[in-house]
Design a protein around this nucleic acid. Structure first.
Length: 672
DNA sequence: GTTAGGGACGCCGGT
DNA sequence: CGTCCCTAAC
């Protein structure tokens, strides 16, 4: 394809609104391009303008595919393009690899032996299903060392994400299970068969089956290649092997592929991300143009210098030098504290001081390596009544009560969903694992009674409630009342023809409200959450779309809902992983002790330390104006009680001139 | 034979 | 804070 010639006068003055490096990338000629965009250099801005640039040059929105790390990022970019151009971007496909995968798979599920109304399993669901497989007679074991369902799910997932066979994954990452390889392979076969029978896909299936769809069905591949003439990928450094192959296949025809990333911010190798994808991109695409964007608009020179020094020990990276465009500010502070309690007190006090000087709480963030590092601080903030917003380990919709509710909807959408079914009947008093399994068998038989005979497609589906009714023989006596209530609820919601918010209303009124009240002390809080879910559901007319969205929404996105609850000014508490792409005026990084950050478990592999260092780099570069790096000298541990801590090796690596060491004892220790 | 409740232990990260 | 295992109760 020839370089872009503007057929019409352009609305946007690109050279004016972008710096020269950004402008070069945005106006790149068609063909493969790699954009190395350092932290805070306007990566999102560059991608946004690139989309606008394409649209202005007459590329129809439906021919553009935009793959991002979160759905929120995709939405945000499309909104910004819309603001820039006023163009209609509804036809532009933008989202995460998982959500775009789900979309493609829905179009062609039959080719892979699934129906297009498949539902999506989260990690817990997968674990439940693996557990169910382990309950089959052939897998019964008394071996205490046999891997737990959690470990099995991890193992199966890692194999997929590394695009390796199970035996390769075992040999490479779980050598302790080598002797079990053939049994585990058999188990995996069962697990897969059961997923297919239940018409469900887990997160990994949304990638691997999408890839299979493209490799096994040339006509399908051809269709997508034809459609997606321009492909843009954000956060390319965090793609795994499958995702890189997906992109390569989709772009193979037109080769109009622009990938954007920062090799220094690759922090997801533990879930299969392959950092070689970005390093080797120029080798895979010899004609690729490489653009570097190296001006940082976010951080003060002091913070940026510290960041550059922090990442310097890493061997493998693209040569680049980030320079700050900002005026000088305060040097970052390194703050040793006696213990985690003092550390929490220090952070809380500092937050209060800054807030009194006029800094909004919402512009401050506390970052940490692992969720449990923040416990003491939560207590301290609560004690001092400093409002905070925490992105905890559990996402909103992974909470039991939210999952209970969605299980109703999932079963309506996909009556083969064994996992949803069992979850629901387990809510009933007197029903445990055994009764649930019996009920499922009998329910399954009932749903299939109508399938014999001819032309099942033309026949109206037998209502779920009727199938349940006919399974009632296997219900324990004391469950009878609850069972009737359950069946009645199901009868009501399946009449509604895909009105998610209506369904939720009925489930709460007819069944789940009572259940919450009987089973939980904090039922009010939980009831409020499910109400919230009902409100969120208002935006959706279509049940499948709603469920897909819900399954694939990240923590950050669910918080959008939370935010609407109160406009209160709050400090942000988050893991570094979840803070990716975000920025704050003031950043605190906690628990910089060797063994916690870098974490011991990451140091098994030689690449582990480099990845932890990149994580440290990501943490530092979230800060605009002020940065505090703290660690406790003593820490209470499970095994040894009070143990003295060694400061993180990442702190030791920093040249002393780049930070200021605070001594809480000498200064105003009393107030901390 | 099952289910329900209580106590002990262990924790990296997330679509 | 949540999962697992054990034991009491049905």
């Amino acid at each position: 394809m020839r370089p872009f010639e503007s057929p019409v006068p352009l609305q946007i003055d690109y050279a004016q609104e972008l710096n020269p490096q950004q402008h070069a990338a945005v106006s790149a000629a068609p063909g493969p391009a790699l954009v190395i965009a350092g932290a805070g250099s306007g990566k999102t801005r560059t991608l946004t303008y690139r989309v606008a640039f394409l649209v202005e040059h007459g590329i129809p929105a439906r021919q553009i595919l935009l793959l991002t790390f979160t759905n929120k990022a995709a939405k945000e970019m499309m909104r910004r393009v819309n603001d820039l151009l006023g163009a209609d971007l509804r036809d532009l496909w933008g989202g995460t690899f998982h959500s775009i995968g789900a979309r493609c798979l829905r179009l062609h599920a039959e080719r892979l032996g699934f129906r297009r109304d498949f539902t999506i399993l989260d990690r817990e669901d997968s674990r439940d299903l693996v557990k169910a497989c382990l309950g089959e007679p052939e897998f019964e074991t008394t071996d205490k060392l046999f891997p737990k369902p959690d470990a099995l799910v991890d193992l199966f997932s890692l194999a997929v994400n590394k695009y390796a066979s199970l035996s390769e994954a075992i040999a490479c990452d779980y050598p302790q299970f080598i002797a079990l390889t053939s049994r585990l392979e058999e188990l995996l076969r069962h697990f897969r068969a059961r997923k297919q029978a239940a018409n469900v896909m887990d997160f990994d299936d949304l990638q691997i089956k999408w890839l299979r769809l493209l490799t096994d069905f040339p006509d399908v591949l051809e269709g997508f290649q034809q459609r997606f003439q321009f492909i843009l990928v954000d956060e390319y450094q965090d793609t795994n092997t499958i995702q890189a192959r997906l992109i390569d296949l989709l772009a193979a025809k037109h080769k109009n592929l622009m990938v954007v990333g920062d090799d220094s911010q690759s922090i997801y190798s533990w879930r299969g991300a392959n950092f070689r994808n970005i390093i080797d991109f120029p080798k895979r695409y010899p004609s690729a143009k490489v653009y570097k964007i190296e001006t940082n608009y976010r951080s003060t020179p002091e913070i940026l210098e510290l960041a550059n020094a922090a990442i310097a020990p890493n061997r493998e990276q693209f040569e680049k030098k980030l320079a700050s465009a900002r005026k000088s500010g305060a040097r970052p502070a390194v703050v040793p504290c006696n213990d985690a309690g003092i550390q929490a007190a220090f952070v809380a006090q500092r937050i209060m001081d800054l807030h009194e000087e006029g800094a909004p709480l919402s512009q401050m963030a506390v970052l940490y390596r692992s969720h449990f590092h923040v416990m003491e601080l939560q207590l301290e903030l609560t004690r001092r009544q400093i409002p905070f917003l925490i992105t905890s380990g559990l996402r909103f919709f992974e909470q039991a009560h939210i999952k209970d509710l969605t299980a109703f909807l999932k079963l309506v959408a996909n009556r083969s969903d064994e996992i949803a079914f069992k979850r629901l009947v387990l809510l009933l008093p007197g029903v445990g694992a055994k009764a649930a399994a019996r009920l499922w068998t009998s329910f399954l038989a009932q749903t299939q009674v109508l399938l014999d005979g001819k032309d099942s497609a033309a026949r109206p589906k037998k209502p779920i409630a009727t199938c349940l009714q006919k399974s009632a023989a296997t219900v324990p006596k004391k469950t009878a009342t609850a069972w009737a209530q359950f069946v009645a609820t199901m009868a009501q919601i399946e009449d509604l023809q895909a009105q998610p918010s209506e369904m939720i209303r009925i489930i709460i009124d007819a069944f789940y409200g009572d259940y919450l009240e009987e089973n939980f002390d904090n039922y009010r809080q939980r009831a409020e959450d499910v109400e919230q879910l009902g409100i969120f559901a208002h935006q959706f007319q279509d049940l499948e779309v709603f469920l897909t969205q819900l399954s694939l929404m990240s923590t950050a996105e669910t918080e959008e809902q939370e935010k609407n609850k109160g406009e209160e000014d709050r400090v942000r508490l988050t893991t570094i992983h979840q803070a990716k792409g975000l920025e704050y005026d003031v950043v605190f990084v906690l628990m910089l002790c060797d063994g916690l950050f870098p974490s011991t478990r990451s140091l098994d592999s030689s690449d582990g330390e480099e990845e932890e260092r990149r994580l440290f780099y990501v943490a530092i570069t979230r800060a605009r104006n002020e940065l505090y790096l703290s660690y406790p000298l003593l820490r209470f541990t499970q095994s040894q009680g009070e143990a003295s801590q060694i400061p993180s090796r990442f702190l030791m690596e920093l040249p002393a001139g780049l930070y200021e060491e605070w001594n809480l004892r000498q200064t105003n220790f009393g107030s901390y």
